[in-house]
Design a protein around this nucleic acid. Structure first.
Lengths: 140, 140
DNA sequence: TATTGTTATACTCTATAACTATA
DNA sequence: TATAGTTATAGAGTATAACAATA
C-alpha cells in the first residue's frame, strides 16, 4: 500500500463538484417520486417555519418574481398556504400545510436512506466532516 | 470550551444541503459573469475531452433531447463544436473550441478563488475531506 | 420614497413522444 | 432491431421591467 497522496485544491474542487451533483441528483429523484421538481422540493425543505416570500427568494438565490410561481404551484397542490402578516400587510408568510409537513418528512427520510454513506460515519468522522464543510462553505 | 457534540446524520445531511447550495451558488455566479447559465457552465466544465452528446446527457443527468439545445447555444457562441465520429456516424462528439478552453480555465480559476476555504486546508485535511466525500458520494 | 409581492415578457431548462440516420 | 441525435410540444424555472398595495 502506497500512502495516499494529498489531492491538490483543484482536485478537491472537482470532487466537490461531483459531490454537489450527486447530492442534487439524489434530492431531485426523491422529489420526483412525489411529482415535485427540484425547486419545489427545495422550497418545502426550507419551510421549517413560516417565511416571507422575499426570504424564500434570498434562500433559493433567485429573483422574488420566481417565488410567486413556485408558491402558486405548491399552493394549488395543497402543500403550502399564504398568510398575510398582520404587523406588515405587504408581507405574505408561506406556511406548510399538514400535507406539506408530511411530504417534507418523507423527503428527508428518503434522502437520508438514499445517502447510504452518511449513516456509516462514526461520531468522530461526523464531527470532522461537519467542520470541513463549515470551513469551505461558511454559513451565509 | 465544551467539547463539540457530534452532529446527528440528519444534521449532517442539512449541512450537506447548505454546502451543495453554496457550491452551485458560487458556480452559477462565476458562469453568469460570462453570460452563461448553470447548465452551460456545467457542460463546458465536463468537456475535458470530446464527448458524444449521449454521454453528456448521462453526466448532466438530463434527457438527451435537452443536450441538443444546450450545445446549440454554446456552439452559436463559438465555445464548442460538433464533429461526427468517423467510426460511427450516428455519434457527434462535442469539442471545446480554443475560446471554450479559455472560458473553462477562467471559470475554474474564479471558482477556486471564490471557494476561499479550500486553499486554507492543509494536506492532511485535504486527504480527510477527499475520503469523506468519496464515502458519502461514491463515484457513479 | 422604499419595500413586498404580482404580472407580463422573453429565454432557458425539462421530459415525453415521434422522427431521421445510422448501425 | 436498436442506438444517436433531432424536432415539436408543453410545463417549469429564470431575470428584467413595470405595477399595485403598503409602509
Amino acid at each position: 500500500m502506497t500512502p495516499t497522496a494529498p489531492p491538490t485544491p483543484a482536485q478537491l474542487m472537482d470532487q466537490l463538484a461531483q459531490a454537489a451533483a450527486g447530492y442534487y441528483r439524489s434530492f431531485a429523484a426523491v422529489a420526483a417520486e412525489r411529482g415535485l421538481t427540484l425547486m419545489q422540493g427545495k422550497m418545502l425543505s426550507l419551510l421549517r417555519r413560516p417565511m416571507p416570500m422575499r426570504t424564500l427568494a434570498d434562500l433559493l438565490a433567485c429573483d422574488a418574481s420566481n417565488v410567486t410561481g413556485i408558491v402558486d404551484r405548491l399552493e394549488a397542490r395543497g402543500l403550502v398556504s399564504r398568510e398575510t402578516a398582520p404587523a406588515d400587510r405587504r408581507i405574505k408568510n408561506v406556511t406548510l400545510t399538514e400535507e406539506g409537513e408530511d411530504t417534507v418528512r418523507q423527503i428527508r427520510a428518503e434522502l437520508m436512506s438514499s445517502l447510504t454513506g452518511l449513516e456509516g460515519l462514526d461520531e468522530e468522522e461526523r464531527i470532522t466532516f461537519q467542520r470541513l464543510l463549515a470551513r469551505v462553505f461558511p454559513a451565509a
